[in-house]
Amino acid sequence: MTTHNPIDQSTATTQTPYQPRRQWQSQMLPVRNMHYHLRHWEPAQINPDLPVLVLAHGWMDVAASYQFVVDAFSEAFAQGRRIVAHDWRGFGLSRTAQPCDSYYFTDYLADLDMLLEQISPDRPVDLVGHSMGGNISCMYAGARAERIRRFVNLEGFGMPETAASQAPKRLAQWMDELREQRAGGMTLAPYASVEAVADRLQKTNRRLPRDKALWLAHHWAAPDEQGHWRILGDASHKITNPYLYRVDEALACLASITAPTLSVEASDDSLGQWHKGRYSLAEYHERLTHIPQCEIAVVHDAGHMLHHDQPKAVAKLIEDFLR
């Protein structure tokens, strides 16, 4: 099923939302036990010699998040190229058929594998992943090295090292949070209007312009039957993952990546801000040495949502690397 997705003019605001330069189409594809939502930007005539460019979003984000970067691609790069972004399960319009109380990292790997089987069954793809999407893509690029031609990782840093001794407390926390969820304690707060959603996006990201915040708000959230705007993300994503992050497993996957890789980070050092000394950029850079072919680039005047903050700079890095 394919549909066009203009902004609902009934929710028009006093300020004009961002106007996309390149129009997209939506499509639902069957993936394992559900349907995945794809947003794709396709030229009038596709060049079969160009690999499909797949864009993977981060935690509590949606495929529409890449619109600003897609708009910033040059005509020479976009001409004839199929560009696809998907909503991960439990985000955007990719919702499970039955209520889900936990999401597991390995499910995303299998989902991506099934998606690529349908999107580009016979050829490797170019893969870009942001944050959680970058972490998933790192593991996938190692496990399915032959499926990736080139890989761009946008702030997908991985996680701090863990120890087996943390397992009992971690499992207990997971079970406690499942109880809290069953009691109705795990929810995402509603917003009174789409403008309030835009306010929230700008509060999180001080560099996001108002027009882009208003546009993104229409795709990051949707009104319910009572007219309250709710984020298009399952509250179950807030539940602690019961599995520890195994650095040795992550390094094995990095070492198995055969695609030339570009690791892109923002100048604000979001990694240091999150982990407060438990995990640093220096440690991340040491992990990158396990990838056989890896370059590092920095986007200046940008935070973790660097594809929103500096879409032109991010688009140029992707273009130059994929060429």
Results as ranks from 00 to 15, higher is better:
residue 2 T to N: 10
residue 15 Q to G: 04
residue 16 T to Y: 00
residue 17 P to F: 00
residue 21 R to Y: 05
residue 21 R to I: 11
residue 21 R to N: 12
residue 21 R to D: 13
residue 22 R to D: 02
residue 24 W to N: 11
residue 25 Q to F: 03
residue 26 S to H: 13
residue 32 R to W: 06
residue 38 L to I: 07
residue 43 P to N: 03
residue 46 I to T: 15
residue 50 L to Q: 14
residue 52 V to G: 09
residue 54 V to W: 03
residue 59 W to L: 13
residue 60 M to L: 14
residue 61 D to R: 02
residue 62 V to K: 04
residue 64 A to T: 08
residue 64 A to Q: 10
residue 64 A to H: 11
residue 65 S to K: 03
residue 67 Q to W: 01
residue 74 S to I: 06
residue 74 S to L: 06
residue 77 F to N: 08
residue 79 Q to T: 15
residue 79 Q to M: 06
residue 91 F to H: 15
residue 98 Q to S: 13
residue 101 D to A: 09
residue 106 T to S: 14
residue 106 T to N: 13
residue 113 D to E: 15
residue 115 L to H: 00
residue 115 L to I: 14
residue 118 Q to T: 08
residue 119 I to G: 10
residue 121 P to R: 03
residue 125 V to I: 14
residue 125 V to F: 05
residue 125 V to D: 01
residue 128 V to R: 01
residue 128 V to A: 04
residue 130 H to R: 04
residue 130 H to Y: 06
residue 130 H to L: 01
residue 134 G to D: 02
residue 140 Y to F: 10
residue 141 A to Q: 00
residue 143 A to C: 09
residue 155 E to C: 00
residue 165 S to R: 11
residue 182 R to V: 06
residue 182 R to D: 14
residue 188 L to P: 02
residue 197 V to D: 01
residue 202 Q to W: 00
residue 203 K to F: 08
residue 205 N to R: 08
residue 205 N to E: 14
residue 208 L to N: 09
residue 213 A to L: 05
residue 214 L to G: 06
residue 215 W to M: 09
residue 215 W to S: 09
residue 216 L to I: 07
residue 217 A to I: 07
residue 218 H to F: 00
residue 224 D to F: 02
residue 225 E to F: 00
residue 226 Q to P: 04
residue 226 Q to G: 10
residue 228 H to T: 09
residue 233 G to T: 11
residue 235 A to W: 03
residue 251 L to F: 01
residue 255 A to R: 05
residue 258 T to S: 14
residue 259 A to P: 02
residue 263 S to M: 12
residue 273 Q to I: 07
residue 277 G to Q: 09
residue 279 Y to K: 06
residue 280 S to G: 12
residue 281 L to K: 11
residue 283 E to Q: 15
residue 285 H to Q: 15
residue 292 P to E: 07
residue 294 C to G: 05
residue 297 A to H: 05
residue 305 M to W: 03
residue 312 K to V: 13
residue 313 A to G: 02
